[in-house]
């Protein structure tokens, strides 16, 4: 029989080993991409025009698409979450809405892509464009964003609402001045996760955004994201543009590097905004 103490030590060691293993996998993965991509990581490549093989269009396209998606996503999901948690009565209709959202969350992203092509590309905008892509991504991220926002709203203590109502505030005033400001951190978590998704997705964007190598100006223009560009490089026929498969692969690795750095930067930015809000809300300026 093992003593209680040695049992503890064994469990601790196993858990520790698993954690270290995970970290090694992560470091290997990022390290491999970084090392392989390093030879291609030149400013002329990163900021060069994509028509000459540079990354300017995918970088601009990714940011453009992310911002457009957030413009649609945040009001829609916050609005839905506020309605569901503050206004709607609990009945078959709200149950149905919730059930639909949960179901939507489980649908593969390529299906959203098909839907985006059918509605946004073929009927609404008649072409693959940033706006069609961002609307598709909005549909994709909506269930998750609504769930996180609802969660954040529900965690606001009843006492705060009572304080507000007790001073003569209406429901709307309370939502704007007490509920939403204090739910910002939860909402921002959802936003960060959604940004990650927008940057990483390829399937729903293949046919809704297209592969245009030109710098996008209007939301009606097509573009390509970094992830799409990576997909393009990894699958392209090796003869195009006189590049070998190896050249293309190391370019793809460089794109991967940029992608990872971009995600880290955006997360960092989101964290800064989050801290700013958090402090403002708590009254420390």
């Amino acid at each position: 029989m093992l003593t209680k103490n040695s049992q503890q030590n064994i469990v601790w060691s196993i858990l520790w080993a698993i954690t270290i293993l995970l970290m090694i996998v992560l470091l290997l993965l990022i390290g491999y991409v970084f090392v392989k991509g390093a030879p291609e990581m030149k400013l002329s490549f990163i900021f060069g025009p994509t028509t000459n093989g540079g990354l300017m269009t995918p970088i601009v396209g990714t940011l453009y698409l992310t911002i457009m998606t957030l413009i649609f996503l945040i009001p829609l999901s916050v609005g839905t979450a506020v309605y569901l948690s503050e206004y709607a009565e609990q009945n078959w209709f709200t149950e149905f809405v919730r059930y639909s959202l949960t179901s939507l969350a489980g649908i593969p992203s390529i299906i959203f892509g098909l839907f985006g092509v059918a509605l946004f590309v073929m009927i609404w905008f008649k072409k693959a464009s940033i706006i069609a892509g961002s609307l598709t991504l909005t549909c994709l991220s909506l269930p998750f964003m609504v769930a996180t926002t609802e969660e954040a709203i529900r965690s606001i203590p009843k006492a705060w609402r009572e304080a507000s109502y007790g001073l003569g505030a209406t429901k709307w005033y309370t939502i704007i001045h007490v509920v939403l400001p204090n739910a910002t951190s939860g909402i921002l978590t959802g936003v960060i996760m959604s940004i990650g998704r927008v940057i990483a997705e390829t399937a729903p964007l293949l046919a809704t955004v297209g592969f245009s190598a030109f710098l996008p100006v209007s939301p009606m223009d097509g573009t390509r994201t970094l992830a799409l560009h990576l997909f393009y490089l990894a699958t392209e026929a090796p003869t195009v543009g006189g590049l070998t498969r190896n050249d293309l692969l190391s370019q793809a690795m460089a794109v991967g590097t940029v992608l990872i750095i971009l995600i880290i930067l955006l997360n960092f930015l989101a964290k800064l905004i989050f801290n700013h809000f958090n402090q403002k809300v708590r009254g420390f300026k």
Binding site: A163, G166, L167, Y173, G283
Partner: peptide
């Protein structure tokens, strides 16, 4: 209007997560 005429103090102190000043100004702004 009724709640402005008939104020309330609750069992648990429930200041809003704002500054002292903003807590005091909350109702006045309403």
């Amino acid at each position: 209007k009724l709640r402005q005429r008939v104020g309330m103090v609750f069992q648990q102190p429930n200041p809003l997560p704002k500054s002292i000043f903003d807590n005091m100004a909350y109702g006045l702004r309403i």
